[in-house]
């Protein structure tokens, strides 16, 4: 896009800035729209599983429900508790929301549709997702109230614990792909399974890693069965208890943007991203972003499905799973996969 603006007679610096701003809008606005739609899907799926109708009043099939909710919270009054630390209280939802959107910069929607095709893409995602804990911690502390504080402590401990094993799982994928660039990771999956299937997940050493990654992404986004930060029976509404109006909506949107990000990471790292599922020429006529969106949506459906079916973990069980099961297992697999690659790809002991 930068070249186009330069050809229109703009200076290189201005063209770069303009192209970046347009690129950011082209990603952020559809992501926000997608978030509104998946909130609707989430409620519909939940309704269907519970034999209810779900939202069906606003718009055809209730499709506009999320927008109606958005308008409602927009018109509400922002209440700041008098004992709250005002600056940090208002900063917390902004940070949560911004961090949730910033990570999308390196996600390749198709081979060419990526804002920043950087070498350290996966590390960037890891770095940004490690920031998301701050929004929650700051919200919990600044509210100056017991429940949000407990919730913030739980959230931070949970996210740090699962980030460790997510890191090791990402190392496994990076070992196979030989790069941190997300586009190259997707390309490396072309014809990976017996020359036919475009996915890492078919490898017997990577399949368990995908299972761990999927469960960890549930924990990382605080979805059931790991939604202890919002356990109603114990903590009212968790770190959001004192929030109202747009501040509350920003948490909500950020949370769903993070869930979508985790779904798309599952797609990119283990299911071939924008590649069609099978390496068969006619399937390549379908544009890459359609495959990407389809796969991401399947993962989102799995997230909703799990929400409706699995009961919540106890907190000590959550910590035990993270540190005593996932961490040793992912460490073991890093060793196994490195050994396997040394044997098969790099010709034995070098």
């Amino acid at each position: 896009m930068t070249e186009f603006f330069i050809s229109q007679g703009m200076s290189a610096g201005f063209a770069l800035v303009l192209a970046s701003v347009i690129g950011i809008l082209l990603i952020a606005l559809p992501v926000m729209f997608a978030v509104a739609m998946v909130i609707y899907v989430d409620r519909k799926v939940l309704g269907a599983i519970m034999l209810r109708r779900g939202p069906n009043v606003v718009g055809p099939f209730g499709l506009l429900q999320s927008f109606a909710d958005g308008l409602k919270v927009f018109l509400q009054e922002t209440i700041i508790p008098s004992a709250a630390n005002k600056g940090i209280f208002l900063l917390a939802p902004i940070i949560t929301f911004t961090v949730a959107l910033v990570a999308w910069a390196v996600i390749p929607f198709s081979e060419t549709w990526v804002l920043a095709d950087i070498n350290v893409g996966l590390l960037y995602i890891l770095a940004i997702s490690s920031l998301s804990v701050y929004g929650i911690t700051m919200a919990g502390w600044a509210s100056n109230s017991k429940y949000p504080f407990f919730s913030a402590m739980r959230a931070a401990a949970q996210m740090i614990s699962y980030e460790v094993s997510i890191g090791f799982i990402l190392v496994c994928v990076v070992l196979f792909a030989g790069t941190f660039n997300l586009n190259d990771i997707v390309r490396a999956q072309e014809g990976f399974g017996l020359g036919v299937i475009n996915a890492y997940v078919v490898h017997p050493l990577l399949f368990p890693m995908w299972v761990l990654f999927f469960i960890s992404s549930l924990a990382e986004t605080q979805r059931t069965p790991f939604d202890l930060t919002e356990a109603e029976s114990e903590l009212v509404a968790g770190y959001q208890t004192e929030y109202s109006s747009m501040a509350f909506a920003l948490f909500w949107l950020g949370e769903y943007a993070n869930i979508l990000l985790m779904c798309s990471l599952n797609t990119l790292l283990f299911f071939g991203g924008w590649l069609p599922p099978i390496d068969w020429a006619p399937l390549y006529y379908v544009p890459g972003f359609i495959w990407f969106l389809l796969k991401t949506f399947v993962f989102f459906f799995m997230f909703s499905w799990i929400w409706a079916t699995v009961p919540r973990y106890r907190y000590d069980q959550l910590m035990r799973l993270g540190w005593k099961v996932f961490l040793p297992m992912s460490l073991l697999f890093v060793v196994l996969i490195s050994g396997w690659l040394m044997l098969t790809r790099y010709g034995g002991a070098a």
Partner: peptide, 11 residues
């Protein structure tokens, strides 16, 4: 740069 964010900021 990424390691600085992951290790120092994130942990």
């Amino acid at each position: 740069a990424m390691l600085l964010v992951v290790v120092y900021v994130g942990a």
